[in-house]
């Protein structure tokens, strides 16, 4: 053949789709700092990050599910159900095990196991039985929400008082002033980012979401890949619940309401393509931070009513998708 040497890969400036969410985050921080001097205080930052952690941990899992071409609407209800289950099991074990580290570990194991199983069930119905992800998870969303309401008998499930006191530090304490939820969130993000960009599994997720036929013909086990994303998301819902339960020590029918939408919104704002094929874990982190900063700023200032929080988040989500489309058009 003729000349086959190619120029080396060129380093270009990242596109607007990459920079957009980052710029939006910086703008929000500047606005926050100008409006309220307390905004940049350690206490406030810790508060924002810790509250972001639940949605954030779930959103990292959601990034994988969406990248592989799926969707999971059930995570909010699932979190409530797992929280309820965890509380029930720990309360039931209290007489025999007493207050101590083992019972906490038991609760954590229950949460992780229940989350993984719930995720696998979603994944099984979607992949092996071939039912639309939207329908399966819409169904399981209703089922878990109803189960927690039933378990709590319409009210609230609470951890025993001593247990609650013993478990509280998992949310409120930390290492070197960084609270545990933030540490766990950071770990989940780092591991997620590495898996997404550096491992075969991450690339198989993107290939599956991009075109499952090509993935299949490239010997990627499409069903297994999808199933694993749902199982991982379920497990991360379990992790989030482990961090969440000590905060209030209770679970009710209103626990985790709309978490699924916040998680999906964070993923989309971060630049992951809703139709699948491309995912960015660190983008999701930025998405989560943007959403909770808006909430935080509205609460700290009286410039705009906090009641308008949802409206502003909505505008941001739509803007993010428009940015994605511009990038597509540019190609």
């Amino acid at each position: 053949m003729t000349d086959t040497t190619l120029p080396a890969p060129t380093r270009r400036l990242p596109s607007m789709a990459v920079l957009g969410p980052l710029l939006a985050l910086i703008v929000l921080i500047v606005i926050g700092a100008l409006m309220n001097p307390n905004f940049l205080s350690g206490a406030n930052i810790t508060n924002v990050l810790a509250r972001s952690a639940f949605i954030g941990i779930i959103a990292v899992g959601m990034t994988f599910v969406i990248t592989a071409g799926g969707l999971d609407l059930s995570v909010g209800s699932m979190a409530a159900f797992i929280a309820g289950l965890m509380i029930l099991v720990m309360n039931a074990a209290l007489p025999s095990m007493g207050v101590g580290v083992p019972i906490i570990l038991l609760g954590m194991a229950v949460a992780l196991l229940a989350g993984t199983l719930a995720g696998m069930l979603n994944g099984f119905l979607i992949t092996t039985l071939g039912i639309e992800a939207f329908i399966v998870t819409l169904g399981s969303m209703g089922i878990y929400r109803s189960l927690i309401t039933w378990l709590a008998n319409g009210g609230t499930l609470s951890l025993g008082f001593e247990l609650r006191t013993f478990y509280r530090p998992v949310y409120f304490d930390g290492v070197l002033g960084v609270s545990w939820p933030i540490i766990v969130f950071a770990l989940v993000v780092i591991i997620g980012e590495i898996i997404m960009t550096r491992t075969a599994f991450g690339r198989h997720c993107a290939a599956t979401g991009s075109n499952e036929h090509v993935a299949h013909y490239s010997n990627v086990n499409v069903n297994r890949t999808r199933l694993l994303t749902y199982a991982a998301l379920g497990m991360l819902v379990g992790v989030a619940t482990i961090m969440y339960v000590p905060r209030l020590g209770s679970a009710s029918a209103s626990t985790g309401v709309l978490w699924e939408l916040e998680a999906i919104a964070a993923v989309i704002i971060g630049g992951t393509v809703l139709k699948g094929g491309f995912g960015r874990v660190w983008g999701t982190v930025i998405g989560v931070l943007i959403l909770s900063l808006i909430d935080n700023i509205l609460n700290l200032t009286d410039f705009v009513s906090p009641y308008l929080n949802g409206a502003i988040q909505g505008v941001i989500i739509i803007l993010a998708v428009i940015l994605q489309r511009e990038r597509k058009a540019a190609q």
């Binding site: 290939a207 090509v214 094929g277 190609q331």
Partner: peptide, 12 residues
């Protein structure tokens, strides 16, 4: 439709 991911690069 089955062989290549058209919106990916050559390496991947």
């Amino acid at each position: 439709l089955r062989g290549l991911l058209l919106n990916w690069g050559m390496r991947e």
